[in-house]
Amino acid sequence: MAAGARRQREQAARRRARRTGAVGFAGALVLPILLWHRVIAAIASEFHLDVRYLVAGWAPWLLMAMGLVCLAIAGVIDWRERERRFYGPGSAPWVGWGLSLYILGFALATQVAQIADSLGRS
Score class of each variant (00 low, 15 high):
R14P: 05
A44D: 11
A17G: 11
F47D: 05
R38S: 13
I40K: 08
A17K: 11
V69I: 14
A74S: 05
M64S: 02
Y53M: 06
D50G: 15
I115C: 00
W94R: 04
A26Q: 12
I33V: 13
M64H: 02
G75E: 01
Y87W: 10
S91H: 08
A44K: 08
R7L: 09
G90S: 06
F106T: 03
R16Y: 13
E46Q: 11
G120Y: 02
I103D: 00
R38H: 15
A92W: 06
G21D: 06
A72N: 04
M66Q: 15
G105P: 01
R121H: 05
V95S: 08
S100Q: 08
A13R: 02
P32C: 00
P60Y: 01
R38P: 14
A113T: 01
R121I: 07
V30I: 14
W58S: 05
V30R: 10
P89C: 08
A107R: 03
S118L: 04
G120P: 01
V95K: 07
L104D: 05
R16S: 13
L29R: 12
T110D: 11
R52V: 13
E83Q: 15
R15Y: 14
L68Q: 03
L49Q: 14
R121L: 13
I77L: 10
L108R: 12
A59D: 13
A26G: 14
G4I: 04
W61R: 07
A65I: 01
R82G: 14
R9S: 10
E10R: 10
L68A: 02
R14E: 09
Q8L: 14
M64T: 02
R15W: 12
A44V: 09
A13L: 05
M1R: 04
P93Y: 01
W36F: 15
G75F: 01
A113Y: 02
V30E: 11
Q114S: 09
S118N: 00
P32R: 04
R85L: 11
A109H: 09
A109F: 07
